[in-house]
């Protein structure tokens, strides 16, 4: 099978001669036993499988954790979008023409309870995905600290919170609307 190279060229002859010479001078070592090859082969196979599993895990685990965390993340962490009543529900029936009234006071929107509409003065909308969920913030001009009523129309929940109890997002919304966190009825946002 092996066809010797024709070495008429000095360079080619030198390559052949020196390769032969090197083969003679190189320390020869006996091949490892076939059992050694088989053991090493099995170890390599195990290492290769392990590397693939680790690589797969390195990709899949962060993706799974990220997806799970996104699924678990509370929906009210979405940024608030501040709009006026008219922008939110321009066709909503108004109970009164008073500038402080105009929000639909439907029991289904307030967790089955009616809110004192006379004190409603502005609405904050919370953007949740594709659905707009309005958050009504009621400023109650009472004696003592200022209170807010936050109503989530879509989920029908209403709660009352003092200034200190507002979440950072709600706090920022109040600041955006009033320019400060000490709102009074004499300075309505709309």
């Amino acid at each position: 099978m092996m066809t010797p190279a024709t070495n008429s060229d000095p360079l080619e002859r030198c390559l052949v001669d020196q390769a032969d010479q090197l083969a003679k001078t190189a320390s020869t070592s006996a091949p490892p036993s076939a059992d050694w090859f088989l053991r090493e082969h099995q170890q390599r196979t195990r290492r290769r499988v392990f590397r693939r599993v680790v690589t797969l895990a390195a990709v899949a685990v962060p993706l799974a954790v990220g997806g799970f965390a996104h699924w678990l993340s509370p929906s009210d962490q979405a940024p608030l979008q501040v709009v006026t009543r008219d922008e939110f529900r321009p066709t909503a029936p108004r109970i009164s023409q008073s500038p402080q009234v105009g929000w639909t006071n439907h029991p289904s929107a307030n967790g089955g309870e009616s809110i004192d509409e006379s004190s409603l003065d502005w609405i904050v909308l919370d953007q949740l995905g594709d659905d707009l969920v309005p958050v009504a913030i009621e400023v109650i001009p009472a004696e003592g600290p200022v209170h807010f009523v936050l109503g989530l129309l879509a989920v029908g929940s209403v709660r009352t919170a003092s200034l200190e109890e507002l979440s950072p997002t709600e706090f920022a919304a109040v600041e955006t609307l009033y320019g400060s966190t000490t709102p009074t009825l004499s300075t309505p946002p709309f």
Binding site: M1, M2, T3, P4, A5, E12, L15, V16, A19, A23
Partner: peptide, 14 residues
């Protein structure tokens, strides 16, 4: 190519 040709003496086809 050089190793196969001059050290291992294979033909061009091989």
């Amino acid at each position: 190519a050089i190793v196969l040709r001059y050290a291992e003496q294979l033909s061009y086809e091989e």
